[in-house]
Amino acid sequence: AVSDRLIGRKGVVMEAISPQNSALVKVDGETWRATSGTVLDVGEEVSVKAIEGVKLVVEKLE
């Protein structure tokens, strides 16, 4: 799938994300809905860990 190429890519949080709420991230110039197990604020850099349906699963870039 096209989205599989995004695993391992870096992105930027466009809307705050919490474990209860998905929000938008920008990866390679494209906007995607994403979820995370932690709270992520706007502007934080993230890494794509997986794809669940049409959502990216991201975590904060260390």
Rank of each mutant, 00 (worst) to 15 (best):
V57R: 07
V39W: 14
E62C: 12
K49M: 11
Q20V: 08
G37A: 14
S3A: 11
G8A: 02
L24R: 04
L40F: 05
S36Q: 01
E30G: 05
V39E: 11
E59Y: 05
T38Q: 14
K55C: 15
S18V: 07
G53A: 04
L24D: 04
V2T: 10
E45L: 14
L56A: 01
T35F: 08
D4Q: 11
I51E: 02
E15G: 08
G53I: 02
R9Y: 08
V25W: 00
S47M: 15
K10S: 07
V57C: 06
D41G: 11
K60C: 06
L6S: 02
L61Y: 10
R33V: 14
K55F: 15
E44D: 15
V42M: 05
E52L: 10
E44M: 13
V42F: 04
V13N: 00
V54A: 13
V48K: 02
L61R: 06
A16H: 08
W32S: 02
Q20D: 13
K60P: 09
E30N: 07
T35L: 09
G29R: 04
T31K: 05
V46H: 03
V42H: 03
V54N: 15
V42S: 04
G37K: 13
I51N: 03
E30V: 11
E62N: 13
N21Q: 11
E30I: 10
S36G: 05
G11F: 00
P19G: 14
G43C: 14
R9H: 11
M14K: 04
I17S: 15
V2W: 11
G53C: 04
G29W: 02
L24H: 05
S47Y: 15
M14Y: 05
G53T: 03
E62R: 09
E62K: 10
K26P: 03
G53R: 00
S18W: 10
E45I: 14
E52M: 10
E59V: 12
R5K: 11
T35K: 07
L24S: 06
T31G: 04
G53F: 04
K55A: 11
L56T: 02
V54L: 14
D41R: 15
E15K: 09
E44L: 07
A23F: 15
V39G: 08
V25K: 00
R5I: 07
K26A: 09
G53Y: 03
G11M: 00
V12M: 06
K60E: 03
R5G: 08
S22W: 13
L24K: 06
T31C: 15
S47I: 15
R33N: 11
S47G: 05
T31F: 14
E15S: 10
E52K: 08
A50S: 09
S18K: 08
G8E: 03
D4L: 10
V42G: 04
V12G: 01
D41L: 14
G11H: 00
D4N: 11
L56K: 02
W32H: 08
V48E: 01
M14I: 14
S36M: 05
A16E: 06
E44Q: 11
K49W: 05
G37W: 13
L40C: 04
L61D: 06
D41V: 15
E52P: 00
V2M: 12
V42L: 06
I7Q: 02
E15Y: 07
V12Y: 08
D28R: 00
V58I: 05
S18T: 12
D28G: 07
